[in-house]
Design a protein around this nucleic acid. Structure first.
Lengths: 133, 133
DNA sequence: GATAAAATGATAATAATTACTGATTTGAGG
DNA sequence: CCTCAAATCAGTAATTATTATCATTTTATC
């Protein structure tokens, strides 16, 4: 028999938080937020629920190359920019370019199923700081 | 005065190995290879030299999303496929598509400097295994 | 060769994540 | 409303990739 999933207030809080932010928080950032509402919450609980929600497809795990997993409740395919200055992660509002999968497959003898694109550059705030100097 | 870099046989071995493979090995895989020639080599030495070579721009560090850093002596911009079955990392022989940087910048108020694309799918070997079943 | 700086091997430390454990919460049936 | 089994929790220990430390060895220059 498959394992039934029961409601938990902590998991709900995690999900709510991710659905109302676009900052792509790390597990630790989620932990600190949940702690405002559940001061005794365990970091393990946060990790367990982030994994569970990821498995369920309700959230997405992002690899931004900074050694932390970031989480995003926007599960539609979309791309991100990482600011090389502040390490912030931002959504990009551009259409997915799935034709690159075809391009990639031309000289590859396997099967291309999809892709992730991670852009890097400067966010608005850090760009302005640079321009002022 | 800037720190001078002195030759070391271990670093040379690491570099040679990376230049003659296209398997994008992890630090641990490099370690095991170097050990064949230098049985007493330390894992710390491997990590230190991989970091140094990366800083010097002689090799590239790849983030394949499997929790390990992978290394590549091919420093020209190129894309990779990760096999979702065997977790292998393979080179793709396609032209970089830098115009996506422009597309990404259209609705982004910062500055796009570049991008990485990571494709996922099945490598030739795993694809054949699937087809045989 | 002698010398000083850099690199090494061995080991300890760090830090993100995962696993374990006994107590608490949840939800379905009576 | 009560009960009970299963799921979840808090707290903590374990795991694991990577980095830092340090005495010794190697490298390059005089």
């Amino acid at each position: 028999m498959a394992t039934a999933i029961k409601y938990s207030r902590q998991r709900e809080c995690i999900k709510e938080y991710l659905m109302h932010t676009d900052t792509h928080p790390t597990a630790d950032m989620v932990y600190h937020h949940v702690r405002e509402q559940f001061p005794k919450v365990s970091l393990g609980t946060v990790y367990r629920n982030l994994s569970l929600l990821t498995e369920l497809g309700e959230i997405i795990k992002l690899d931004c190359g900074d050694g932390y997993d970031h989480f995003d409740a926007n599960t539609k395919q979309h791309y991100h920019v990482v600011c090389t200055e502040c390490r912030g992660v931002f959504d990009l509002h551009m259409e997915p370019i799935d034709h690159v999968n075809v391009l990639a497959g031309v000289n590859f003898n396997g099967k291309i199923a999809g892709h992730h694109i991670m852009f890097y550059g400067l966010c608005e705030e850090c760009l302005n700081k640079h321009n002022q100097e």
